[in-house]
Amino acid sequence: MTTHLSYVPQKSGAEFEELVPSRYALRIGEIDVLVVSDGVLPLPTETMATNVAPAVRAAWFKDMFLGPDMFDWALNVLVVRSGDKTILIDAGLGGQFPGFPRAGLFPKRLEAAGIDLASVTDIIVTHMHMDHVGGLLVDDVKKRLRPDVRIHVSATEVDFWGTPNFSQTAMPTPVPDVLRTTATEFLKVYGANLQTFAEEREVAPGVVARLTGGHTPGHSVVHVTSGGERLTFAGDALFPVGFDHPDWHNGFEHDPEESVRVRVRLLQEAAATGELLVATHLSFPSVGRVALDGEAFRWVAASWDF
């Protein structure tokens, strides 16, 4: 006997509620953390493992029930409340890029969560790829952010995008130019708001951005620590394939070899501490822990608390 679940959408104002939850709240000690889905965007599977044979890559995607040629890449951003500060960590893709109708959703999802963009005091940018800063270039977002919002990004990242080097990447053909123009526009719009740091910056009590490099020279992760608990937002240091094959290169990595070293150190640290881990491109809500599995790692998704 087959049971069919019927869903009757309930109206919320003039719009229907979403069938699938798009935000997930948790507490790290005394700090509030909200994971928000910016949506998904389609990517070629070949960009996820550029240093292995196509058949090996195809077998992994088949085992994961993904592909064979394209798959949906999750986009997650964080909102953190610590003390009197409300901190946005990355800002998704934005809606200005054609061909990605299911991404750039974080502004309306923040609004649905009751979070006013005008309440954001600080923004941490893990790196300046378009799917991390593009959301800040949407006209409605620019109008709603407070003019004195502080944007924290590593000085190395800002310097890199002055003359970016794509020689070690393997991106789809149009992407480098779009990345370059988006980063340039971001610096033009928000240059006066930038608060750059060298190695790390405590943005609020228990909220620390730390330079890792690798994915981009100035890529950073964010540690949220309170009450003996810790959560790390890994940005793009980690992709879904990285647990089974941390040595596989991603086509968007500007320094693939360094990215592997950063990824392995991050996963080893998370396995040793038992901390929670969230990453931009792990399937929403992207909250879990890491366990050692021989020379590889195993992702242990956290149980939803509701």
Rank of each mutant, 00 (worst) to 15 (best):
residue 141 V to Q: 02
residue 296 A to E: 01
residue 39 G to R: 08
residue 153 V to D: 08
residue 228 G to H: 08
residue 294 G to H: 07
residue 231 L to F: 04
residue 110 L to G: 14
residue 77 V to S: 09
residue 68 P to Q: 01
residue 38 D to G: 08
residue 41 L to M: 15
residue 285 P to F: 04
residue 184 T to H: 14
residue 156 T to S: 14
residue 204 A to Y: 07
residue 4 H to Y: 11
residue 151 I to K: 04
residue 223 H to Q: 08
residue 102 R to H: 14
residue 196 T to W: 00
residue 168 Q to R: 09
residue 279 A to C: 09
residue 40 V to T: 14
residue 190 Y to Q: 00
residue 95 G to A: 13
residue 105 L to D: 10
residue 166 F to M: 04
residue 116 D to N: 15
residue 250 N to C: 08
residue 73 W to V: 05
residue 55 A to W: 06
residue 37 S to I: 00
residue 65 F to T: 05
residue 257 E to R: 10
residue 181 T to V: 15
residue 225 T to A: 08
residue 41 L to N: 05
residue 110 L to E: 15
residue 132 H to N: 12
residue 146 R to A: 04
residue 20 V to F: 12
residue 139 D to Q: 15
residue 239 F to L: 11
residue 259 S to A: 12
residue 248 W to R: 06
residue 212 T to S: 10
residue 90 D to R: 07
residue 61 F to C: 04
residue 280 T to E: 11
residue 200 E to V: 07
residue 34 L to E: 02
residue 179 L to H: 10
residue 210 R to H: 06
residue 179 L to R: 05
residue 165 N to S: 09
residue 17 E to R: 09
residue 50 T to P: 07
residue 142 K to L: 05
residue 284 F to V: 07
residue 279 A to T: 08
residue 190 Y to M: 00
residue 172 P to V: 05
residue 126 T to A: 13
residue 15 E to R: 15
residue 156 T to C: 09
residue 293 D to L: 13
residue 59 A to Y: 02
residue 275 E to Y: 02
